[in-house]
Design a protein around this nucleic acid. Sequence first.
DNA 1: CCAAATTAGTCACGATCATTGACTATCAAT
DNA 2: ATTGATAGTCAATGATCGTGACTAATTTGG
Lengths: 150, 150
Amino acid sequence: MEVPDIGVLAGQLMRAVQEELFETLAEQGHPDVHPRHETVLAFLDPEGVRATDLAARSGQHKQIIGTILDELVRLGYVTREPDPADRRAKLIVPTERGIDEIAKARAILTAAEERHERSLGAERYAGFKEMLQQVTRDQQAWRQAGPSTA
Amino acid sequence: MEVPDIGVLAGQLMRAVQEELFETLAEQGHPDVHPRHETVLAFLDPEGVRATDLAARSGQHKQIIGTILDELVRLGYVTREPDPADRRAKLIVPTERGIDEIAKARAILTAAEERHERSLGAERYAGFKEMLQQVTRDQQAWRQAGPSTA
DNA sequence: CCAAATTAGTCACGATCATTGACTATCAAT
DNA sequence: ATTGATAGTCAATGATCGTGACTAATTTGG
């Protein structure tokens, strides 16, 4: 069996984590959140965040954020409140249901990582995650350095 | 700054690897291959492979493989040859252009990993990749063990 | 050897998702 | 007050994925 490259491995890992996250969320009372919703939910704040900030932080287009927010509003996870500081903007505020989802999602991901800690050993896993962060940063940095120097 | 979970990290890493791969491929004479094509190209064999095998190995549906193959034929990367052993089947054979693409894709991915090796040190990077494989396997294994025992 | 069940591949349809451009309303700066 | 930038939405398009039905060929069982 060939050893897959880090791109393929990363993709498989992402997909597997997503499957655990959303299947477990479904069991815990949130059957209607999808991976695309999580890119918004992950960046919410009880105080409220502006849609543009969500777009910037998640790296997705404003329009996508808009349709995702439409769904999340319809599903009762967030509300759009007027921003007192800027009448153009709207603050995206999680509802109680939204806060519950966020908490449960965090718990599920923490539990998954704790499994890996037990499997690899806490020390090795800590090193792994640190290296994963650095490799990701370095790989993202190619955008600036690579195309010209290639 | 919060530490992202491994799912987000894996997703970012995958995306960054893909960007480097396809932008560099474009510079090297393959501007029209897309990520979806790679899921087929990665599993090709100069001797020819059957479409069903490609579907099984890549984990995607036959129909998707079919449309990807349509495009790859149109772009001149593969041809559909009759399978002498089974008149229903067709062997997907890479053209010279296809073989060139595969070789260049491998070289780009190898170069990226060598960058990370230099950055982390060969020994640490080897350990990282091994752990990445194990974590991915463990995470995928949740499907069997997790939902019931959760 | 022939009928039934499988398998390889394709066709047609619909659902989801991402990207682009234009548009209104508001803010900020001169 | 005018100009330019920003927040959010609308509309249209293309790319991608998934499902079911279909044809042709193979395999299996009598």
